[in-house]
Design a protein around this nucleic acid. Structure first.
Lengths: 146, 146
DNA sequence: TGAAATTCCTACTTGGTTACTAGGTTTTGT
DNA sequence: ACAAAACCTAGTAACCAAGTAGGAATTTCA
């Protein structure tokens, strides 16, 4: 029941792009430095976000990445499902029909459904913009102390 | 973000013992047959439940297992934490103090906290007795159809 | 036009975990 | 004594996570 590094990093990358958004393209090595993630690994993860159309890229010198849309358009759930695969706590709840043979008499299906609902409710209720805003607020309050 | 077979099986074993509770000891092969789980694998899982004091056993002929307490005393969360380890979606929320270096500035910690709370709320809010009751109700309604 | 900077693509590696299977030991009722 | 059970430990095959590595393709700029 752990979120993998891939998923966690993907969310952090999106928030990083939102927080440091200047309209320009951000390079992988900048994100990597700020987020303390290996450049090579980050490359792989951001390429998934790119193929899904969540970020936009340009190659070559002065290239980089930026969010494809407003940060408010992306929920944490979207990012996690993309990078983690399904967030269902049990395989039988994936897809439209339950393929499990025991599903009609399953004693435990109900708990997994509740769990699934609760998880989705949280991750689909938080956007990258929400997280970015909080981060900016935190940074500002830190600046005041200096 | 999947519950493992171990965890799922452990919950089913507990519910099975609750549903089929006669006061007598139930043999592993009976549970295995009803639940369609390999006897040997089930043995290993139930031994964890035994060591935790959730079930009680007697060896030898006519031996077996039964719930150590009333089914209402056991939550799904207890069983899962025992067999899965922690249910925290991220490692840094385990334990009393957050050991993560970035935790003071972490952009994403808040989502994981919300997720953790939501998960705990579900699994700690459902007992083995709840599941067993529903199962018995289901069985009775099936009997009526025959 | 050439060099540098950058994304893009693919393969590999290492280590751990899951989900079992297998085989033997101990205990106990009859 | 014997059979039926729980108990214990080791092994194993397959998979996945979390990277590392190296080079190809593309773009900018001097």
């Amino acid at each position: 029941m752990k979120i993998s590094s891939r998923g966690r990093y993907a969310v952090r990358i999106m928030v990083d792009l939102a927080v440091n958004n200047t309209g320009e393209y951000t390079k992988v090595n900048q994100i990597a430095r700020r987020q303390d993630i290996s450049e090579k690994y980050l490359e792989q993860i951001i390429s998934v976000l790119n193929k899904a159309g969540y970020v936009r890229s340009t190659r070559g010198a002065q290239g980089g990445y930026k969010l494809a849309k407003d940060a408010g358009c992306f929920t944490v759930g979207m990012i996690l499902r993309l990078t983690e695969g399904s967030l269902c706590p049990v395989a039988c709840l994936e897809g439209d029909t339950n393929e499990c043979e025991r599903c009609d008499t399953c004693e435990t299906l109900d708990v997994w459904k509740q769990l699934n609902t609760a998880i989705n409710h949280v991750v689909d209720g938080v956007t990258i913009a929400d997280l970015a805003e909080k981060q900016l607020a935190r940074q500002n309050s830190m600046d005041c102390l200096i």
